[in-house]
């Protein structure tokens, strides 16, 4: 059936079997292979994309359910040059094999927006206070993204640097 999805700012109309996931539509039909298929069951986060600005597991989305929706993939984040998080992941060596990296970066991009919006997390001491992105907060908020190479120290450093920089810019 026909479905129109805006991917990285461009409208794409596809004729899809209802079984096709958003991840497979991106990779196999639009040839945007940045989003990765890890577990294909929503457990590893390698397929994370932004759906209408929010991070989701694209492997658990049926593409036909997203007619008219806006999707941003890792390719979209790099348009006009690498995003601050992409640069920070390189600078802090936040990867080894790199397979989880697109998902990590898409997830972190949206996670920083959630922090800016004041969303509390499981480890937040209060449900009301502004969120301070401590190591515990970062680990909790990124727990949907696994890295089997265990590059978490680099990933944490990259995200922390961008979060700090964003905060400094916001107060300047």
């Amino acid at each position: 059936m026909a479905v129109t999805i805006t991917v990285n700012g461009q409208d794409h109309t596809l004729d899809l079997d209802p079984r096709v996931t958003l991840l497979d539509a991106l990779r196999d039909h639009l040839h945007l292979t940045g989003s990765k298929k890890g577990c294909d069951h929503g457990q590893c986060g390698a397929c994370t994309v932004l759906l209408n600005g929010r991070r989701v597991n694209s492997c658990l989305c049926l593409a036909v359910m997203h007619d008219g929706d806006e999707v941003t993939t890792i390719e979209g984040l790099a348009e006009g040059g690498p995003s601050p998080l992409q640069e920070a992941f390189v600078a802090h060596d936040g990867m080894q094999c790199g397979y989880c990296t697109p998902g990590q970066i898409c997830s972190a991009t949206a996670m920083l927006d959630e922090v800016a919006a004041g969303w509390p997390s499981h480890v937040s001491a209060s449900l009301d206070c502004p969120v301070e992105l401590t190591h515990d907060e970062l680990a909790e908020r990124m727990s949907g993204n696994l890295c089997r190479c265990s590059c978490y120290p680099g990933i944490n450093a990259a995200i922390t640097e961008v979060a700090r920089r964003g905060k400094t810019e916001a107060t300047e």
Binding site: L60, E114, P120, G144
Partner: peptide, 23 residues
């Protein structure tokens, strides 16, 4: 919910991952 039903916010935040809770 955060103000009047904090037990509900806490339970939701204890479940799944950020990506899954968005969907």
């Amino acid at each position: 919910v955060r103000r009047t039903y904090p037990v509900l916010s806490r339970a939701l935040l204890a479940g799944a991952s950020g990506q899954l809770r968005n969907k």
